[in-house]
Amino acid sequence: MKILIVMVRYQTPLSRSLTLRGLHDALASSPVLANMYTIMIWDNSQEAIPADQLPPSLLYRHSEKNLGVSGAYNSSAHYAHEHGYPWMMLLDQDTCIPMDFLQKMAQHCEALLNRLEIAAVAPVVFVRKFLVSPRQQLFNRHRAYPFGEIGIAPGEAFAINSGCVLRVTALQQVGGYSTDFWLDYSDLYLFHQFFLYGLKVWRAADATLEHDMSIMDYDRLMSPSRYRNFSYAESAFNDLYKGRMENAVQTLRVFVRALKQRKKYKNPEFSRIAWEQWMYRMRVPRKERIRRWIEAGKLRMISQSNPEDQREKISS
Protein backbone atom coordinates (compact mmCIF):
# COMPACT_ATOMS: atom_id res chain seq x y z
CA MET A 1 0.00 0.00 0.00
CA LYS A 2 1.25 3.46 -0.93
CA ILE A 3 -0.02 6.92 0.02
CA LEU A 4 0.38 10.01 -2.14
CA ILE A 5 1.13 13.11 -0.09
CA VAL A 6 -0.07 16.26 -1.85
CA MET A 7 1.26 19.61 -0.66
CA VAL A 8 -0.16 22.69 -2.40
CA ARG A 9 2.43 25.42 -2.80
CA TYR A 10 1.72 29.08 -3.44
CA GLN A 11 4.47 31.68 -3.66
CA THR A 12 6.53 30.21 -0.82
CA PRO A 13 10.10 28.94 -1.38
CA LEU A 14 10.36 25.23 -0.67
CA SER A 15 13.22 25.96 1.71
CA ARG A 16 10.82 27.89 3.93
CA SER A 17 8.10 25.24 4.01
CA LEU A 18 7.61 23.92 7.54
CA THR A 19 5.71 20.97 6.07
CA LEU A 20 8.50 19.84 3.75
CA ARG A 21 11.07 20.00 6.54
CA GLY A 22 8.88 17.82 8.75
CA LEU A 23 8.22 15.33 5.96
CA HIS A 24 11.92 15.10 5.11
CA ASP A 25 12.91 14.44 8.72
CA ALA A 26 10.19 11.81 9.23
CA LEU A 27 10.87 9.90 6.01
CA ALA A 28 14.66 10.10 6.39
CA SER A 29 14.37 8.41 9.78
CA SER A 30 12.47 5.39 8.43
CA PRO A 31 13.19 3.60 5.12
CA VAL A 32 9.92 1.66 5.57
CA LEU A 33 7.90 4.88 5.69
CA ALA A 34 9.87 6.32 2.79
CA ASN A 35 8.72 3.38 0.67
CA MET A 36 5.08 3.87 1.69
CA TYR A 37 4.81 7.59 0.92
CA THR A 38 5.33 9.61 -2.26
CA ILE A 39 5.44 13.41 -2.01
CA MET A 40 3.87 15.53 -4.72
CA ILE A 41 4.20 19.32 -4.80
CA TRP A 42 1.26 20.87 -6.62
CA ASP A 43 2.36 24.40 -7.43
CA ASN A 44 -0.28 27.10 -7.91
CA SER A 45 2.35 29.86 -8.03
CA GLN A 46 2.70 32.06 -11.08
CA GLU A 47 6.25 30.88 -11.81
CA ALA A 48 7.33 27.25 -11.85
CA ILE A 49 10.37 26.10 -9.88
CA PRO A 50 13.28 25.25 -12.22
CA ALA A 51 13.92 21.53 -12.45
CA ASP A 52 17.51 21.84 -11.20
CA GLN A 53 16.22 23.35 -7.93
CA LEU A 54 13.92 20.42 -7.12
CA PRO A 55 14.89 17.43 -4.94
CA PRO A 56 14.88 14.31 -7.15
CA SER A 57 12.64 12.41 -4.71
CA LEU A 58 9.71 14.82 -5.20
CA LEU A 59 6.96 14.72 -7.80
CA TYR A 60 6.36 18.25 -9.04
CA ARG A 61 3.43 19.61 -10.99
CA HIS A 62 3.03 23.27 -11.88
CA SER A 63 -0.46 24.43 -12.77
CA GLU A 64 -0.73 26.99 -15.55
CA LYS A 65 -4.15 27.92 -14.13
CA ASN A 66 -4.56 28.61 -10.43
CA LEU A 67 -7.81 26.81 -9.62
CA GLY A 68 -7.19 26.96 -5.89
CA VAL A 69 -6.86 23.98 -3.59
CA SER A 70 -9.92 22.33 -5.15
CA GLY A 71 -8.33 22.22 -8.57
CA ALA A 72 -5.03 21.02 -7.12
CA TYR A 73 -6.65 18.19 -5.15
CA ASN A 74 -8.88 17.07 -8.03
CA SER A 75 -5.92 16.92 -10.41
CA SER A 76 -3.80 15.11 -7.82
CA ALA A 77 -6.60 12.58 -7.26
CA HIS A 78 -6.61 11.87 -10.99
CA TYR A 79 -2.86 11.19 -10.84
CA ALA A 80 -3.33 8.99 -7.74
CA HIS A 81 -6.02 6.93 -9.48
CA GLU A 82 -3.95 6.44 -12.61
CA HIS A 83 -0.89 5.34 -10.63
CA GLY A 84 -2.62 3.01 -8.18
CA TYR A 85 -2.55 5.05 -4.96
CA PRO A 86 -5.59 4.09 -2.81
CA TRP A 87 -5.07 7.00 -0.39
CA MET A 88 -4.09 10.63 -0.73
CA MET A 89 -2.84 12.75 2.19
CA LEU A 90 -3.44 16.51 1.96
CA LEU A 91 -1.05 19.00 3.52
CA ASP A 92 -0.68 22.77 3.56
CA GLN A 93 2.79 24.23 3.14
CA ASP A 94 2.97 25.47 6.75
CA THR A 95 1.86 22.48 8.87
CA CYS A 96 4.09 21.13 11.64
CA ILE A 97 4.60 17.37 11.08
CA PRO A 98 5.48 15.35 14.22
CA MET A 99 7.94 12.50 13.77
CA ASP A 100 5.36 9.79 14.50
CA PHE A 101 2.50 11.29 12.48
CA LEU A 102 3.15 9.49 9.19
CA GLN A 103 3.60 6.16 10.95
CA LYS A 104 0.28 6.40 12.78
CA MET A 105 -1.65 7.54 9.73
CA ALA A 106 -0.15 4.73 7.63
CA GLN A 107 -1.24 2.19 10.23
CA HIS A 108 -4.83 3.46 10.10
CA CYS A 109 -4.85 3.45 6.30
CA GLU A 110 -3.47 -0.09 6.15
CA ALA A 111 -6.11 -1.37 8.60
CA LEU A 112 -8.93 0.41 6.75
CA LEU A 113 -7.83 -0.38 3.21
CA ASN A 114 -10.72 -2.78 2.49
CA ARG A 115 -13.38 -0.89 4.45
CA LEU A 116 -14.73 1.00 1.47
CA GLU A 117 -17.32 2.88 3.52
CA ILE A 118 -14.47 4.88 5.12
CA ALA A 119 -13.90 7.88 2.86
CA ALA A 120 -11.43 9.79 5.03
CA VAL A 121 -9.01 9.29 7.91
CA ALA A 122 -8.89 12.47 9.98
CA PRO A 123 -6.18 13.22 12.54
CA VAL A 124 -6.70 15.57 15.46
CA VAL A 125 -5.68 19.11 14.49
CA PHE A 126 -5.07 21.90 16.98
CA VAL A 127 -4.70 25.63 16.43
CA ARG A 128 -3.05 27.04 19.56
CA LYS A 129 -4.56 24.29 21.76
CA PHE A 130 -8.04 24.70 20.22
CA LEU A 131 -9.30 21.51 18.57
CA VAL A 132 -10.40 22.50 15.06
CA SER A 133 -10.65 19.09 13.38
CA PRO A 134 -12.47 16.77 13.17
CA ARG A 135 -15.75 18.18 14.40
CA GLN A 136 -19.42 17.25 14.25
CA GLN A 137 -21.79 19.41 12.22
CA LEU A 138 -24.91 20.38 14.15
CA PHE A 139 -27.71 22.90 13.66
CA ASN A 140 -25.85 25.99 12.46
CA ARG A 141 -22.83 25.17 14.61
CA HIS A 142 -20.30 22.42 15.21
CA ARG A 143 -18.58 20.83 18.18
CA ALA A 144 -15.45 18.80 18.84
CA TYR A 145 -15.65 15.07 19.31
CA PRO A 146 -14.52 13.63 22.67
CA PHE A 147 -10.76 13.68 22.76
CA GLY A 148 -8.92 10.38 22.29
CA GLU A 149 -11.71 8.24 20.80
CA ILE A 150 -10.57 6.27 17.75
CA GLY A 151 -13.19 5.01 15.29
CA ILE A 152 -16.00 6.13 13.00
CA ALA A 153 -17.13 9.66 13.75
CA PRO A 154 -20.87 9.71 14.53
CA GLY A 155 -23.25 12.11 12.80
CA GLU A 156 -22.11 14.47 10.06
CA ALA A 157 -18.38 14.87 10.50
CA PHE A 158 -16.04 17.28 8.81
CA ALA A 159 -12.29 17.79 8.91
CA ILE A 160 -9.99 20.46 7.56
CA ASN A 161 -8.00 19.54 4.47
CA SER A 162 -4.53 19.66 5.99
CA GLY A 163 -3.46 16.35 7.48
CA CYS A 164 -6.50 14.46 6.25
CA VAL A 165 -6.15 11.27 4.21
CA LEU A 166 -8.81 10.67 1.55
CA ARG A 167 -9.74 7.45 -0.19
CA VAL A 168 -9.22 8.22 -3.88
CA THR A 169 -12.23 6.18 -5.04
CA ALA A 170 -14.48 7.90 -2.49
CA LEU A 171 -13.37 11.29 -3.74
CA GLN A 172 -14.24 10.24 -7.27
CA GLN A 173 -17.57 8.76 -6.13
CA VAL A 174 -18.81 12.14 -4.85
CA GLY A 175 -17.52 14.06 -7.87
CA GLY A 176 -14.41 15.48 -6.24
CA TYR A 177 -13.95 18.93 -4.81
CA SER A 178 -16.22 21.73 -6.01
CA THR A 179 -14.85 24.33 -8.40
CA ASP A 180 -17.26 26.81 -6.79
CA PHE A 181 -15.66 26.34 -3.34
CA TRP A 182 -12.18 26.65 -4.75
CA LEU A 183 -10.47 27.76 -1.51
CA ASP A 184 -12.57 28.52 1.55
CA TYR A 185 -15.18 25.92 2.51
CA SER A 186 -13.65 23.41 0.09
CA ASP A 187 -13.29 20.89 2.91
CA LEU A 188 -16.76 21.49 4.39
CA TYR A 189 -18.27 20.99 0.93
CA LEU A 190 -16.42 17.69 0.42
CA PHE A 191 -17.30 16.23 3.81
CA HIS A 192 -20.92 17.24 3.38
CA GLN A 193 -20.91 15.24 0.14
CA PHE A 194 -19.41 12.26 1.97
CA PHE A 195 -22.28 12.50 4.46
CA LEU A 196 -24.92 12.71 1.72
CA TYR A 197 -23.45 9.61 0.03
CA GLY A 198 -23.43 7.66 3.30
CA LEU A 199 -19.63 7.52 3.52
CA LYS A 200 -17.85 7.62 6.87
CA VAL A 201 -14.99 9.51 8.49
CA TRP A 202 -12.49 7.63 10.67
CA ARG A 203 -11.13 9.51 13.66
CA ALA A 204 -7.39 8.85 13.96
CA ALA A 205 -7.35 10.32 17.44
CA ASP A 206 -3.83 9.09 18.21
CA ALA A 207 -2.35 11.22 15.40
CA THR A 208 -2.13 14.95 16.09
CA LEU A 209 -1.02 18.05 14.22
CA GLU A 210 -0.40 21.68 15.10
CA HIS A 211 -1.58 24.07 12.44
CA ASP A 212 -2.05 27.78 11.75
CA MET A 213 -5.33 29.03 10.28
CA SER A 214 -5.95 32.56 9.10
CA ILE A 215 -9.56 32.44 10.29
CA MET A 216 -8.22 31.94 13.83
CA ASP A 217 -5.80 34.89 13.73
CA TYR A 218 -7.20 38.02 12.09
CA ASP A 219 -4.52 40.41 13.31
CA ARG A 220 -1.56 38.32 12.13
CA LEU A 221 -2.67 36.00 9.30
CA MET A 222 -6.00 37.17 7.86
CA SER A 223 -6.18 39.76 5.09
CA PRO A 224 -9.34 41.70 4.20
CA SER A 225 -9.43 40.19 0.69
CA ARG A 226 -9.19 36.65 2.07
CA TYR A 227 -11.85 37.43 4.67
CA ARG A 228 -14.21 38.73 1.99
CA ASN A 229 -13.73 35.48 0.02
CA PHE A 230 -14.35 33.45 3.18
CA SER A 231 -17.51 35.43 3.98
CA TYR A 232 -19.10 34.86 0.59
CA ALA A 233 -18.11 31.17 0.59
CA GLU A 234 -19.67 30.78 4.04
CA SER A 235 -22.84 32.50 2.88
CA ALA A 236 -23.06 30.36 -0.27
CA PHE A 237 -22.54 27.11 1.65
CA ASN A 238 -25.39 28.01 4.01
CA ASP A 239 -27.62 29.06 1.11
CA LEU A 240 -26.99 25.84 -0.79
CA TYR A 241 -26.99 23.23 1.96
CA LYS A 242 -28.79 24.61 5.01
CA GLY A 243 -32.50 25.04 5.71
CA ARG A 244 -34.51 28.22 6.13
CA MET A 245 -34.14 28.37 9.91
CA GLU A 246 -30.39 27.78 9.79
CA ASN A 247 -30.03 30.55 7.22
CA ALA A 248 -32.02 32.92 9.41
CA VAL A 249 -29.70 32.14 12.32
CA GLN A 250 -26.68 32.62 10.05
CA THR A 251 -27.88 36.09 9.03
CA LEU A 252 -28.25 37.05 12.68
CA ARG A 253 -24.82 35.61 13.45
CA VAL A 254 -23.19 37.78 10.78
CA PHE A 255 -24.84 40.88 12.27
CA VAL A 256 -23.48 40.04 15.75
CA ARG A 257 -20.08 39.26 14.22
CA ALA A 258 -19.90 42.71 12.62
CA LEU A 259 -20.49 44.36 16.00
CA LYS A 260 -17.95 42.20 17.83
CA GLN A 261 -15.22 42.53 15.20
CA ARG A 262 -15.30 46.31 15.39
CA LYS A 263 -14.14 46.11 18.99
CA LYS A 264 -11.99 42.99 18.76
CA TYR A 265 -9.65 43.55 15.81
CA LYS A 266 -7.21 46.32 15.00
CA ASN A 267 -8.23 46.50 11.34
CA PRO A 268 -11.79 47.93 11.05
CA GLU A 269 -12.07 46.47 7.52
CA PHE A 270 -13.07 43.08 8.94
CA SER A 271 -16.11 44.58 10.62
CA ARG A 272 -17.00 46.46 7.42
CA ILE A 273 -16.86 43.23 5.42
CA ALA A 274 -19.10 41.45 7.94
CA TRP A 275 -21.53 44.39 7.78
CA GLU A 276 -21.43 44.22 3.97
CA GLN A 277 -22.22 40.50 4.17
CA TRP A 278 -25.14 41.10 6.53
CA MET A 279 -26.59 43.76 4.22
CA TYR A 280 -26.15 41.42 1.27
CA ARG A 281 -28.07 38.65 3.02
CA MET A 282 -30.81 41.05 4.07
CA ARG A 283 -31.31 42.72 0.69
CA VAL A 284 -30.71 39.90 -1.80
CA PRO A 285 -33.07 36.87 -1.83
CA ARG A 286 -31.57 33.45 -1.27
CA LYS A 287 -32.20 32.18 -4.82
CA GLU A 288 -30.54 35.25 -6.26
CA ARG A 289 -27.53 34.86 -3.96
CA ILE A 290 -27.13 31.27 -5.16
CA ARG A 291 -27.41 32.36 -8.80
CA ARG A 292 -24.75 35.03 -8.31
CA TRP A 293 -22.42 32.59 -6.53
CA ILE A 294 -22.65 30.01 -9.32
CA GLU A 295 -22.21 32.68 -11.98
CA ALA A 296 -19.13 34.04 -10.19
CA GLY A 297 -17.67 30.52 -10.21
CA LYS A 298 -18.21 30.22 -13.96
CA LEU A 299 -16.55 33.58 -14.57
CA ARG A 300 -13.58 32.56 -12.44
CA MET A 301 -13.12 29.40 -14.51
CA ILE A 302 -13.31 31.45 -17.71
CA SER A 303 -10.77 33.96 -16.42
CA GLN A 304 -8.30 31.14 -15.73
CA SER A 305 -8.74 29.59 -19.16
CA ASN A 306 -8.92 32.73 -21.28
CA PRO A 307 -8.81 36.27 -19.82
CA GLU A 308 -9.92 37.79 -23.14
CA ASP A 309 -13.11 35.68 -23.13
CA GLN A 310 -13.93 36.87 -19.63
CA ARG A 311 -13.61 40.56 -20.58
CA GLU A 312 -15.89 40.02 -23.57
CA LYS A 313 -18.46 38.17 -21.42
CA ILE A 314 -18.49 40.86 -18.71
CA SER A 315 -18.72 43.76 -21.18
CA SER A 316 -21.63 42.12 -22.96
Results as ranks from 00 to 15, higher is better:
3 I>R: 02
11 Q>A: 13
17 S>L: 01
19 T>F: 02
24 H>K: 14
27 L>Y: 07
31 P>S: 01
35 N>Y: 00
50 P>L: 00
52 D>I: 02
54 L>N: 08
58 L>V: 05
63 S>I: 00
65 K>L: 08
66 N>T: 11
67 L>M: 14
70 S>M: 12
70 S>Q: 09
71 G>E: 04
72 A>N: 06
76 S>L: 13
80 A>W: 13
81 H>L: 15
86 P>L: 09
95 T>I: 12
96 C>M: 12
98 P>F: 03
103 Q>G: 10
107 Q>M: 04
116 L>Y: 12
117 E>W: 05
124 V>Q: 07
129 K>R: 09
129 K>H: 13
134 P>C: 07
137 Q>K: 06
141 R>S: 09
149 E>H: 06
151 G>C: 00
153 A>E: 02
154 P>H: 01
157 A>K: 00
158 F>W: 15
163 G>K: 01
165 V>N: 11
179 T>G: 10
181 F>W: 10
184 D>E: 09
186 S>E: 14
189 Y>P: 03
204 A>Q: 00
205 A>G: 04
206 D>N: 08
208 T>E: 14
211 H>K: 03
211 H>G: 05
211 H>W: 03
214 S>Y: 07
218 Y>A: 11
226 R>Q: 11
229 N>K: 13
233 A>W: 04
235 S>F: 10
239 D>F: 08
242 K>H: 15
246 E>K: 09
247 N>K: 11
249 V>R: 08
249 V>P: 01
249 V>W: 11
249 V>N: 02
252 L>D: 10
256 V>G: 05
258 A>C: 10
261 Q>C: 07
264 K>H: 07
267 N>W: 07
268 P>H: 09
268 P>S: 10
275 W>M: 13
279 M>L: 15
283 R>P: 00
288 E>W: 03
288 E>R: 11
288 E>P: 00
290 I>Q: 00
300 R>S: 08
303 S>D: 10
305 S>D: 13
310 Q>W: 06
314 I>G: 06
314 I>L: 14
